[in-house]
Design a protein around this nucleic acid. Structure first.
Lengths: 218, 218
DNA sequence: GAGAACTTACCGGCCGGTAAGTCAGCCGAA
DNA sequence: TTCGGCTGACTTACCGGCCGGTAAGTTCTC
């Protein structure tokens, strides 16, 4: 279905606005980032920016929804197709970590700025996050029922694993001396080993100490 | 050494101002929290608040310094006195987690709002955080040298463990279904099992849970 | 009466947001 | 082929309000 040139341009422009806004909000925080600043970054006046977005709150909500869609598509949906709960857990940790090494803001905003949303928007985002959390915990429950989990509360375990993964966004600097692939693999190993009883088959583990480098403390 | 009543009163007042400010900033975020709001919460006008604090930035820095002092006193210093690196790591994770279940804001602000500090203040806080991080990583290096660690990069491992612990502040609600003691114990087990090769001596963990029998009330 | 502990009243500035105007380019009609 | 109108994509100019911060005065205690 072809779109008219003007509309296509508008869509591309809108996309670049959201991406730029995400980067700025991610860097400075939502409250500290001003609409004028975002407008200037996309070569518009503030009023010009308001032609595209309804308001600051709507902008934040749009970015978060985009991030949630990304998480759904890249992590949750693929994992849901995996039958074995152990492999499913591994896929979740691995893909979520990998996504965070790519990301340039949206996923971090999703984690950090829920408090800045309006009540209605907040409840919609929180609902999607809860459903993700429950997906992880259900997977852990399945493992526990099969006797494959160490004796820990699955709620605590789910939060801990997700926390470990999400923290990645706080410290990992792409382009630094730590390669994304090794980081993702190490995190996955630490996470799974933390909760799973089984001594997993780890053939790849030996090649671990390849190109490691410096990291950034925020 | 006795303090004069007025000074004592001022100190107590100052203390309660910092505590209240920490709670508000923790709840709404630094940028979203206004000085008038903080003033009102301590039954002062904004100008009255400025009698005690030099400015918003100084207030944030003071709260973070307090949090860092707390971390030093309750986690780092005791751990530094432990010879065995395995027990030292356990103490770090356990005590840091425990501290987070008590905390009413300061430690979370320390983690989340570094970006709002002035460059000078930021570098001073970041330096202390780096030193803590390196303490943890050095402990992991020690374990690795003794062959007691799984084959993962110690930098990634240190960030992952700390991330898991710090995430606790994001989700744990005191007074809920999960008792602080069990949460701390489970997190410690997941963390240590994630990186340590050894099947740990469980006797130590049983003894340590007896020490921390005090209940969290807030 | 001196100093600590405030309050009242105000400042300039930036905030999110908007009303109204501009202007390029496409449209159908003459 | 030209013309008038229409619309999408903006800009200029402005709004009230709250922000961090302060000068100057007041009250209370010793």
């Amino acid at each position: 279905m072809p779109t008219s040139p003007t509309t296509l341009f508008a869509d591309e422009r809108a996309g670049s606005i959201y991406r730029t806004a995400a980067r700025i909000i991610y860097t400075k925080g939502f409250e500290a980032a001003s609409m004028s600043e975002i407008a200037k970054a996309v070569d518009l006046t503030k009023a010009g920016l308001y032609y595209y977005v309804k308001g600051k709150g709507e902008l934040l909500f749009a970015i978060m929804s985009f991030a949630m869609d990304l998480l759904d598509r890249e992590v949750i949906a693929p994992a849901q197709r995996i039958g074995d709960p152990g492999e499913r857990l591994r896929a979740i940790v691995e893909e979520h970590s990998r996504l965070l090494t790519y990301d340039e803001g949206a996923l971090v905003i999703l984690m950090d700025e829920v408090g800045s949303l309006s009540p209605e928007h907040r409840s919609r985002i929180t609902e999607r996050k809860r459903s993700y959390f429950e997906f992880v915990r259900d997977t852990l429950d399945e493992l526990a029922a099969a006797g494959r989990l160490h004796a820990v509360d699955t709620t605590v375990a789910a939060f801990s694993l997700l926390g470990m993964v999400m923290w990645l966004a706080r410290w990992y600097a792409p382009g630094g001396r730590l390669a994304a692939r090794e980081v993702v693999r190490d995190i996955t190993e630490i996470a799974l080993r933390g909760v799973l009883r089984e001594g997993r088959p780890e053939a790849v583990s030996a090649a671990s100490s390849a190109v490691y480098s410096e990291e950034v403390l925020s």
